[in-house]
Nucleic acid binder design. Structure first.
Lengths: 202, 202
DNA sequence: GCACTCTAATACATGATTGTATTTGAATTC
DNA sequence: GAATTCAAATACAATCATGTATTAGAGTGC
């Protein structure tokens, strides 16, 4: 195996990458406060030195992590939005929201963790809110578009309702993850579908 | 001030009580992992000795805390349920769900924290799920009752929809707490009302 | 009042985590 | 290829947390 001899920058990026990946795994498993810098570095195959050479603090790495994941989510939402808008397809697309949200298990845990951090630390909250609001806007925009297409009048601004839909999707996913026996995937989808239908189709 | 000379049991209960109260405050502010046993004890005006004499571990205290709060919530929900069931009142009562939920700020933070703990620790999850399911049953039962009273047919079992409503209320409250400027109390209520109306009245 | 019991404080041994300061060694530059 | 520069390892000093084991002192029962 002719392992390529890495340039300095490549090497640095690689470590950074690995640290982020390890951070995601470790933080998802033990929570932010429960993960030591050493944990993360070791999990990535490095020492603390590498960590501090790449990130200012655990918080910084965590925010980076969230930003990345957020960008991914935003992008896949945009893709759905941009794709096409035939009334028929829209309904299908709507259902995809749930599946779309948090493809991975770690992603979900990360955002749950972010929630509580946000609840406690105003500085963190400010940084997270920015991301949440971006998401809210995307979804809100989608809702308005959707309602216009369906000739459905709502008595709440789409931006506000977007919060509700985010809450719903997140929360239902949470129950689904924590007690898959009591709320299996299928039922979770049904619940969402029922609410969506009641809101947008009846 | 004739401070009553306390009996041994009274004294013990008092410490326990104070420790719980302190635990709520500290854990709400710093999270479970972020709070040291000493933090909690000191905040209550005691030392670690008092803590370990009253609780086996931080986790134990936390669960106790949640159980208490849960009992309170269950009780006030039951009160609403038992009160009366005139169709007119029911709609008003429904709106109260939101206000009812988590009267205090700390209570809210505690449950958010519980969520992530539950996500990470299977043992904890088992204990928490028991509480959640009790709540689910109460709300589910309420929903079924309500639909019967309103002659509204739903294509999802009330127990499942209950998960959705819990998710919704929790999540919307979260946004309301984290960004009161973007989602003020009033709008939060409107969102919930819109969803409730769409589900149960149209 | 005296022996007893239990609650909570204190002492202690141990281990974990942090951030910085310094060193090492591999890439880069000339 | 020697000097340099930078990423990452290592060493280090300082805190802080944990849990147990022991002690002190306030209630209890005779």
């Amino acid at each position: 195996m002719p392992r390529k001899r890495l340039t300095r920058e490549e090497s640095r990026d690689q470590t950074r990458e690995r640290l982020l990946e390890a951070g995601a795994a470790v933080i998802a498993k033990k929570g932010l406060a429960g993960s030591s810098v050493e944990d993360i570095a070791a999990h990535a195959g490095y020492t603390r030195g590498a960590f501090y050479s790449n990130f200012g603090s655990k918080n910084d790495l965590f925010i980076d992590l969230l930003k990345r994941d957020h960008a991914d989510i935003q992008e896949s939402m945009q893709q759905i939005l941009d794709a096409g808008l035939s009334k028929k397809d829209l309904q299908t697309r709507l259902a995809e929201f749930y599946v779309q949200a948090y493809c991975g298990e770690t992603s979900f845990a990360l955002w749950a963790e972010a929630r509580v951090c946000s609840l406690r630390d105003p500085k963190f909250r400010a940084r997270l809110n920015a991301l949440m609001l971006e998401k809210r806007d995307t979804i809100g925009h989608f809702i308005e578009l959707f309602c216009k297409a369906m000739d459905k009048q709502l008595n709440v601004p789409g931006r506000d309702l977007a919060f509700g839909m985010m809450a719903l999707v997140d929360g239902v996913r949470f129950f689904n993850v924590c007690m898959p026996k009591e709320l299996p995937e299928e039922n979770a989808k049904d619940v969402l579908h029922t609410v969506f239908a009641a809101l947008f189709f009846d």
